[in-house]
Design a protein around this nucleic acid. Structure first.
Length: 952
DNA sequence: CTCTCCGCGGTTTTT
DNA sequence: CCGCGGAGAG
């Protein structure tokens, strides 16, 4: 018979002992009596490298410590404990993701056959998230997809859902788990053969779910220090190797899975229900009676494992399958000796006694399970013999753990303990106390079965109710007979309106080939096309494209073939050549030429004209155009060729233009040429969200629509369905400083919410830490330490609900580091879209870090807007022209209105930019936010120095 | 062709 | 300050 502990951690995991090395594990395994040990944290590159260096293959599917590492003086193992220790490669991965509308946090233990498999898994995981910052990586990844990935890398790999009942991080957890395994693993459910019951439940509790009958129930220590190894473990009657283990887990009765060594589940941290903060311990019946609400603080009670088992059980107390594996309860030897000696379990006397016992009798598990009463008496004394007898027979006092508080197991009654304390001599030779049996540990769930109350899965927000429109939207959809421009603020249903209008005219018989929707980006075009297809699934789709694609089409006809467009590198090379001749910086010339190209006419600046012409000539020599020319030259061709102008001017019955505030003069000219008298032109946009002036967009064209398209009708959408009232109030207040008679007062239709919060931090590092702390709290904690530190109950937000915005990409690394340290899954929006994405590209379940510009058009329930400082917003580049302050105000407006429910603002009072340390005051834009509309974070706690976790 | 060292420039971004 | 690109060496 061998004893196996398959789930532990290394020193690279959070809150673990620093002395967790392969050598110390080898030593501790022997002192405990383990034959087979999952080495843990195999997803961490540094730990895996260390394992590769220090372990060698045994040749039969396991590893062992290099012989030369077993001889150091520090690794002395008493003769009585010495045994071969086999290692396997194992690890635990934390998945945080949204599924069926609710946030899920599920931990998975993975055991891999060899280093090649571990490295293959790490390569894939490394692309999905940060696996270097924590031995137990936290990934924004559906655990079903993780299983697929692991099996893809290594078909023999063993996947075991970890501590399946803990409320916060598990398959069946009350806080973020599932009710059925199939709901979690879907089509891959069949790949799961074993479940880890965790400290707070024992096999008997699990037997009450007939749905678990087919699974092997395993127990592991989840140790964070060598001392905790084997506090739970598995008994196997098979060789200590990977293939034998895999076979035993898949076919326990035939292949030698014997059973488990267990904590008294009461001792687990989440056995009962309750509130640690409120000092409230409840059993499931009481929780029911209180309707799940804490009578002290009113918050939801943390529902423990016992309750959860009751909820999902379909068998009565004591019920179970016909055939049940063996299991036995243990109390760690340190705790037993602590009671015997009336001292704490980690005190010097206890440690000495423990060392003496293992030296003279054998490993801890032998002492606890197998040593004869006589031997125990001889070495430890009668009190010890009695204590262990009671443990073995289950005659113990139990006080259930709850809400992260460990439970208490006592082998002696209080009055016995008093008696013992008076005796003085407890260790070896102490008198045997009168045995006074305590409550027998028959079954932990000593309560009457509870009436089953179905726990409903959280319903996500329902689908948007078709194309239901408010009266203003309806008017904008119907309007015809004149050019139309609609001013549509954030969250006013801009896209819905465009789609509804197109659908309405298509339904009325408009020719789809003569209807064109125009956007700026291909992404926007794609989304619009999709929405339109959804809205009118039967009819032929209208044309949806970008200004550039439309320009290309015109030019193709004008030139009798598709134009050749030079790519960006080529263009920059060309400009650089010219710049050298001109004695200018390449970047500077490129910018001027680029801006000039936003207009149809050649530039007016005399100094620029020759270079502009030279540039155009160079293009002509190559018979090529640049991207801006697609629109500009199309307009010129339409000007010069009446026949072409007629064709295109008559072509469209409907033109629908998105983001009109971002147009440049060339694009307006283009529209004028395309919108003939028969054409219904409808434009939509929001001049308050015009943030691309720096690349030639001219928001004044929005107001000038009436001049460019005479007889135009102007409408506004006032209802805002996105931003909670306090967020909208703050954003609106920001814009009142820039008066605009045409601006409608938006009406908050999304309901009330918390006030936006501004935090002032001493440094960018502290700011990043603050953001990370808030994120962790919003996620309800990403590890148990945070949960136990009272990281609130969470708010039901998933990582993908949260965005962190900044003015400069240079701010991103610190924020990313802080989130990585905090263990929150995140992604940084790349400046350029990544050329290659992983083929197994899962829907991102991560916090998004992106620039305020990149956030345009997006929305998130929770938004952080960082770096609200003098010099950063509005941005004042050192030694350069300052950014347009009005545009920077609109940029902040865009940023604020990305937030649906919660808005956090932050600034640092020290910031180093380009090597210069500055002490900026608050952004002057903050002065325009009336004090009543936001709250301040009072004296933020100073950031703790983060412990260095990784080497990478 | 590849490596290293030095100097300088360094918002925001789409086609 | 620090990353990238150009230049010069091997």
């Amino acid at each position: 018979m061998i004893v196996a502990d398959l789930h532990i951690h290394s020193r690279y995991s959070r809150a673990t002992a620093r002395d967790l090395t392969p050598e110390s594990l080898w030593q501790a395994a022997q002192l405990k009596g383990l034959d087979l040990l999952g080495a843990g944290d195999c997803t961490h590159p540094a730990w895996l490298a260390e394992l590769r260096e220090k372990l060698v293959e045994t040749g039969d599917g396991a590893y062992q410590l290099r012989p030369e590492l077993t001889s150091g003086p520090a690794s002395a193992v008493p003769e009585a404990c010495r045994r071969p220790v086999r290692f396997l490669l194992s690890g635990e991965i934390s998945c945080i993701y949204k599924r069926h509308g609710a946030t899920r946090k599920v931990h998975l233990v993975v055991i891999l056959p060899d280093f090649a498999a571990a490295e293959a898994v790490n390569l894939r995981l490394g692309r999905l998230g940060n696996i270097t910052s924590d031995g137990r990586p936290i990934l924004g990844l559906d655990v079903r997809d993780l299983v697929e990935l692991v099996l893809d890398c290594s078909p023999e790999a063993i996947c075991i859902p970890a501590h399946i009942w803990t409320p916060w991080f598990s398959l069946f957890g009350s806080k973020s788990g599932f009710d059925r395994i199939e709901d979690c693993f879907a089509d891959l459910t069949g790949q799961i053969h074993a479940l880890e019951t965790g400290l707070s439940s024992d096999p008997a509790m699990n037997w009450r779910l007939s749905s678990l009958d087919g699974y092997t129930l395993v127990s592991n220590s989840d140790a964070h220090s060598p001392a905790n190894l084997a506090r739970e473990a598995n008994l196997l009657d098979c060789p200590p190797s990977f293939p034998a283990l895999a076979a035993a887990l898949a076919d326990p009765w035939e292949k030698g899975f014997v059973g488990t060594l267990e904590f008294f589940p009461d001792e687990g941290k989440y056995h009962l229900d309750g509130h640690r903060k409120c000092d409230l311990r409840l059993d499931p019946v009481e929780t029911r009676r209180l309707n799940g609400r804490c009578p002290v603080c009113g918050g939801p009670i943390t529902v423990g494992v016992l309750s959860r088992v009751e909820d999902l059980a379909d068998r009565p107390l004591g019920g179970g399958p016909a055939r049940r594996p063996h299991f036995e309860y243990l109390v760690p030897l340190g705790e037993v000796l602590g009671e015997v000696l009336q001292k704490g379990p980690r005190t010097k006397g206890v440690l000495q006694a423990q060392a003496e016992l293992t030296r003279r009798l054998g490993p801890e598990l032998f002492v606890l399970r197998q040593a004869s009463p006589e031997d125990l008496d001889r070495v430890g004394g009668p009190v010890l013999a009695e204590a262990i007898h009671r443990m073995r027979t289950g005659k113990v006092w139990l006080e259930g753990g709850y809400d992260g508080e460990f439970g208490v197991v006592k082998l002696f009654a209080p009055e016995e303990r008093k008696e013992l304390a008076g005796q003085g001599r407890l260790w070896r030779g102490a008198e045997k106390p009168r045995p006074q049996p305590a409550r027998e540990k028959a079954n932990p769930a000593a309560q009457a079965p509870l009436p089953a109350e179905p726990s409903l899965p959280l319903a996500g927000p329902g689908p948007s109710p078709g194309l239901a429109l408010n009266p203003e939207q309806q008017a904008a959809v119907e309007a015809s007979g004149a050019p139309l421009i609609v001013r549509a603020g954030p969250g006013s249903g801009k896209t819905r309106l465009l789609v509804a209008r197109a659908a309405r005219f298509l339904a009325a018989g408009a020719d789809p080939a003569r209807m064109q929707l125009v956007t700026f980006t291909r992404k926007a075009a794609g989304e619009l096309a999709q929405r339109l297809a959804d809205a009118c699934p039967t009819g032929a789709a209208a044309r949806v494209g970008t200004f550039h694609s439309l320009g290309r089409e015109v030019l193709t006809q004008a030139l009798g073939g598709p134009p050749l467009v030079i790519d960006e590198d080529e263009r920059l090379g060309l400009v650089a050549e010219l710049a050298q001749k001109a004695g200018l910086k390449a970047g500077e010339l490129a910018q001027h030429l680029g801006l000039a190209k936003q207009r149809v006419e050649d530039p007016g600046e005399p100094w620029l004209r020759p270079w502009f012409r030279a540039y155009q000539e160079a293009l002509a020599q190559r018979q090529a155009l640049d991207l801006d020319d697609l629109v500009r030259q199309a307009v010129r061709c339409l000007r010069d060729d009446p026949e072409l102008a007629r064709t295109w001017g008559q072509r469209f019955q409907h033109l629908l233009v998105d983001e009109y505030q971002d147009l440049n003069p060339a694009q307006v000219e283009f529209l004028r040429a395309l919108a003939g008298p028969q054409c219904q032109l409808a434009a939509i946009g929001d001049p308050d969200q015009a943030i691309y002036g720096f690349r030639g967009a001219d928001r004044r064209l929005f107001a000038a629509f009436g001049q460019d398209f005479p007889g135009a009708r102007v409408l506004s959408l006032r209802d805002n369905y996105r931003n909670r009232a306090p967020i909208l109030a703050l954003a609106s207040a920001l814009m009142t400083a820039e008066p605009d008679p045409g601006r409608p007062q938006q009406i908050a239709r999304a309901g009330d919410g918390p006030l936006p919060l501004l935090a002032t931090l001493p440094s960018p590092e502290a700011e990043a830490d603050w953001v990370a702390r808030q994120v962790v709290e919003l996620l309800g904690g990403v590890d148990s330490r945070q949960v136990e530190a009272g990281a609130d109950q969470g708010h039901g937000y998933a990582a993908r609900d949260i965005a962190v915005l900044y003015r400069l990409h240079a701010q991103a690394p610190l924020l990313a580091e802080a989130l990585a340290r905090a263990g929150a899954p995140f992604q940084v929006a790349a400046r350029e879209p990544l050329a290659e994405t992983d083929p197994l590209d899962f829907k991102a379940q991560r916090v998004s870090l992106l620039s305020m510009h990149a956030a345009k058009g997006l929305e998130f329930p929770v938004v952080f807007v960082t770096g609200l400082e003098e010099g950063l917003l509005p941005y004042l580049p050192p030694e350069r022209a300052p950014a347009d302050p009005a545009e920077e105000r609109r940029l902040l407006y865009v940023a604020l209105t990305r937030a649906g429910e919660r808005l956090y603002l932050s600034r640092a009072t020290r910031r180093a930019l380009y090597g210069q340390v500055r002490h900026p005051g608050p952004s002057p834009l903050l002065a325009d936010l009336p004090p009543g509309l936001w709250s301040q974070e009072a004296a933020p706690r100073r950031a703790r120095k983060p412990r260095q976790l990784g080497l990478f």
